[in-house]
């Protein structure tokens, strides 16, 4: 068995999501190859070769792949999968992976399993459906299995310790269907709620809207987004686009810090898929503590500034 993984990178740095995907491939078993496709991305291939568990790095370095346009990359991946005999094609379930892999699957005339959270056997996987409110166990019936992997569900393999060979891939596909026009990199440390790796949210315990400044200071240190509970929004502290759990605002960051939030189920439903939940609340009985990995019973007006100082 052999697995081809599409490495996540920006032509200079291998992104950590790749390591979680390698972990899923290791769970499946067999040889693991990483495909680095981009332009001027030798450095990424060098990093990829270090990743534990990877036996081979394929490097497709060409101007046509510079912005990893799906129209150009998908035919390359499909061709490699077919000609090099890969049984699995995996990518992280990032916007890059989600953009590319279905195009690959269709070119291979196979289905795709999106966002898997566990490997049950060589052909059976679990994946969340209905925004994580149900978990489906799905068996793939295709010869080549095309899969995107939810990073937070797999602990990353080590970034170093491997010594894979690097092979150049010379095939160039330029469909000339699309072109890169530009990008706006979010330079701010305040990401969108739904995309944030860390979220700090305030509830009615914040007392008023001005006190959310306390959370913003912590957020600046952590590169976090600032959210709010429905009760805080209803109380008029903050605008409703900050409400976690609202339409489309189901969040699943790596770290969710709930400050002065009692933990009404409406709020829990919006953030329960977070990897690590921290609750800071002075009410020991608050339901939020029933789901928090780390609970701190304290007055938030003492604890939050202290947290900021210690970060």
């Amino acid at each position: 068995m052999a697995t081809l993984i599409i490495a996540e990178h920006d032509n200079s740095i291998l992104k950590p999501a790749t390591l979680n995907t390698v972990a899923a491939a290791v769970a499946i078993g067999g040889d693991v190859a990483l495909l680095v496709v981009g332009e001027g991305c030798q450095a990424v291939a060098d990093q990829a070769a270090q990743v534990a568990g990877v036996s081979k790095v394929l490097l497709a370095d060409n101007a046509a792949y510079g912005h990893q346009l799906a129209e150009n990359v998908a035919p390359l991946v499909a061709e490699l999968a077919k000609t090099a005999g890969f049984d699995y094609v995996l990518a992280p379930a990032t916007t890059t992976g989600k953009n590319l892999l279905p195009r690959v699957a269709a070119l291979l005339d196979v289905g795709q399993l999106s966002d898997i959270v566990s490997v049950e056997s060589a052909d059976t996987f679990k994946r969340p459906i209905y925004a994580g409110n149900a978990i489906a166990t799905v068996k793939s019936l295709d010869a080549i299995k095309v899969i995107t992997v939810r990073g937070t569900a797999f602990d990353p393999v080590a970034a170093e310790g491997g010594s894979a060979s690097i092979e150049a891939v010379t095939a160039v596909h330029d469909a000339a269907l699309s072109r890169f026009v530009g990008e706006e990199v979010a330079k701010s440390d305040r990401p969108e709620l739904t995309a944030a790796r860390v979220i700090i949210s305030g509830g009615r315990g914040m007392g008023n809207g001005e006190n959310f400044a306390l959370l913003e200071k912590v957020a600046d240190k952590l590169g976090a987004a600032v959210g709010a509970s429905r009760a805080a929004v209803d109380a008029g502290f903050v605008p409703n686009d900050m409400q976690v759990g609202q339409t489309g605002k189901i969040v699943a960051p790596e770290l969710y810090i709930a400050v002065g939030i009692s933990g009404a189920i409406q709020h829990l439903a919006g953030m329960k898929d977070s990897k690590v939940i921290v609750a800071i609340n002075k009410d020991e009985e608050a339901p939020i503590f029933q789901v928090a990995d780390y609970g701190l019973v304290a007055d938030l007006f003492d604890a939050v500034p202290e947290l900021e100082a210690k970060l």
């Binding site: 196979v110 289905g111 399993l113 059976t124 969340p128 459906i129 994580g132 409110n133 149900a134 978990i135 489906a136 166990t137 799905v138 068996k139 793939s140 019936l141 295709d142 329960k272 898929d273 939940i277 503590f289 029933q290 789901v291 928090a292 990995d293 780390y294 609970g295």
Partner: peptide
């Protein structure tokens, strides 16, 4: 291309 073997509710979070 796939077969649905079953659906389960998500694991309930336990307090830490």
């Amino acid at each position: 291309h796939t077969e649905l073997l079953g659906v389960e509710p998500p694991a309930e979070r336990k307090g830490g």
